[in-house]
Design a protein around this nucleic acid. Structure first.
Lengths: 115, 115
DNA sequence: TCAATGTTTCAAACATCATTGAAACGTAGA
DNA sequence: TCTACGTTTCAATGATGTTTGAAACATTGA
């Protein structure tokens, strides 16, 4: 269960153009993730700058790193992204389910069906 | 459909302790929202500081304002919050539905059933 | 019209974040 | 062991964000 401090850190991490691009690129890359070098190219930042942002995202728990030979492979931390969404919407249904139903509907159409 | 710039602004707005509290308090307040004065008390910031943060949230499209006598009533912008969540998860299912299913499941249990 | 209330604006001080280039680090292959 | 490669660390700079208190603004009721 995510607490307020973690959520603030996560949102702050996502509230930066390059970092948001990094996360989205990793999300679309799927569980295999992507090496730092490829990420830098995809996002359009210098290696130095990418490293800075990855450290930030890592601190926020939004990505994970794993060395692989000379490269370092980064992956989106899917469970933490889910937890973040949960946190934001957690309280919204208190007595008023209609309020967050649109969000649920939107996400449901994104994925065929939870198995 | 939310674009990258809007999403960055929204996440940055949420990535600050006081602003996140403001939004969550407004989310739990439901469609009736809350007057600025009550918000300031609930969140624990000065009126001046609250005003600064509300302007930021307003710029990001996350809250709306409406004057009501001497007070100004603020409300969470539910559609924009939904859009933000959609944006974050939009691409995650490309060939890999299992990746964002947990997020969908989490939100589904939060709300009984979308009508 | 005056005073009281609720909120915002402004300017100043302070704190935090992003970017850059050079240097260092770890790994792999010759 | 040497060199090349991929990545991170460091220090310096510039840019942004946050907080504060005083003043201004809008609305209401006397």
């Amino acid at each position: 269960m995510m607490d307020e401090g973690q959520a603030v850190a996560a949102f702050a991490a996502l509230g930066q153009e390059h970092r948001l691009r990094i996360v989205r690129r990793l999300v679309t890359a799927g569980p295999d993730g992507l090496a730092a070098g490829l990420l830098a190219e995809a996002v359009g930042v210098s290696a130095t700058n990418l490293s800075f942002h990855l450290k930030e995202l890592s601190r926020a728990g939004l990505v994970t790193a794993q060395r692989e030979g000379r490269s370092i492979r980064y992956r989106a931390a899917y469970p933490d992204l889910s937890a973040l969404i949960q946190f934001l919407m957690r309280d919204c249904c208190q007595g008023r389910p209609e309020v967050c139903a649109p969000a649920v509907a939107a996400l449901s159409t994104c994925c065929p069906e939870p198995a």
